[in-house]
């Protein structure tokens, strides 16, 4: 069992949890993810690692209630436990294993969308701790859905964090792509690499823009997974015309090579089942159909 040490509401339906998971904490790096199973009957859910403390053996995850399984996870409080936490899974971000002197020469632009702010945080933290300068754009629907602003500012510095909201209720107004354009075209900022993590549709449009700008872009894919170790192939996607498994080949890929449309289509696979389960959880077992029904 993996004890939840802290559970904090960040925004509506979005929680931050600190979990005791020494096996993950001892070796995880920015870019990697883990899998949580709430109890015996729950799904295995892949989640990004938001922070970690090797000494204490803890990891921080940020999760949003989107389906029955995440709802169930969020019903747990500090002192409760998950049945399973396994990881780290996937490959760390490239910069972790690259020559640090080379990395230091680059200027990184991070683009975080919504929940994607969580996996961007440990990357920014890692780079800043090693003296690499980064700018971070955080895009979200409105002020109420903004998460981790203070944490991001504390690692990146206030002048390097740019917030934008779709409705203009906080920070700049509009999509993250508008901010990328502003920073590069109007404010003359120079970047060598962009890391975009967020909803697939956001990553798709960021890549469209950065391609025009000639700014190489890395994206982090979070498709449907079951085992997370390369066994099931549920997380397959097409990158550069080849089938890749997000769990072992990724989750980070060259954004210019990813077939986003195909990946987005595949996300729809279990939507009806997920929806059915959620209704069932909220309203009782009245929506259950047998397979194929």
């Amino acid at each position: 069992m993996f004890e939840i040490l802290e559970a904090k509401l960040l925004a509506e339906k979005i929680y931050r949890m600190t979990v005791k998971a020494p096996n993950v904490a001892r070796s995880c790096e920015p870019g990697q993810f883990l899998i949580v199973r709430t109890d015996e009957k729950s799904e295995r859910i892949a989640l990004t690692i938001c922070d970690y403390d090797r000494e204490k053996g803890t990891v921080v995850i940020v999760l949003q209630a989107v389906g029955a399984s995440t709802m169930k996870m969020l019903s747990l409080k500090a002192g409760d436990s998950f049945a399973d936490v396994v990881g780290p899974l996937g490959r760390p971000s490239d910069f972790v294993s690259e020559d640090l002197e080379e990395v230091k020469k680059r200027r990184y632009l991070f683009v975080a969308g919504g929940l994607g702010t969580a996996p961007v945080y440990p990357q920014v933290k890692w780079l800043k701790e090693r003296g690499v300068d980064v700018d971070v754009i955080i895009g979200t629907k409105c002020h109420d859905t903004l998460i981790m602003e203070d944490e991001m500012i504390s690692v990146a510095g206030k002048e390097h964090v740019f917030i934008t909201t779709d409705d203009g209720s906080y920070g700049r107004s509009g999509m993250v792509t508008a901010v990328v354009e502003d920073l590069v075209k109007n404010e003359g900022r120079k970047y060598d690499i962009c890391v975009a993590i967020g909803p697939m549709i956001m990553m798709k449009f960021v890549c469209k823009l950065t391609k025009e700008l000639g700014l190489p872009t890395i994206v982090s894919m979070n498709p449907i997974m079951v085992d997370g170790t390369g066994m099931c192939g549920a997380c397959r996607l097409v990158v550069g015309g080849k089938v890749k498994f997000a769990c072992v080949d990724g989750p980070e890929f060259d954004g210019f090579e990813v077939d986003f449309d195909g990946a987005m289509k595949r996300m729809a696979l279990y939507k009806t089942e997920e929806g059915r389960k959620l209704l069932e959880l909220q309203e009782g077992n009245t929506h259950h159909g047998s397979c194929g029904a």
Partner: peptide
Amino acid sequence: FSANEFLTRNNLMKAYREDYDTPISC
């Protein structure tokens, strides 16, 4: 699906049982 995914959902995750959460699309 790969057979691995289909079987893992059904066998390990017990998707065929109504009381388990993992979905299977068949």
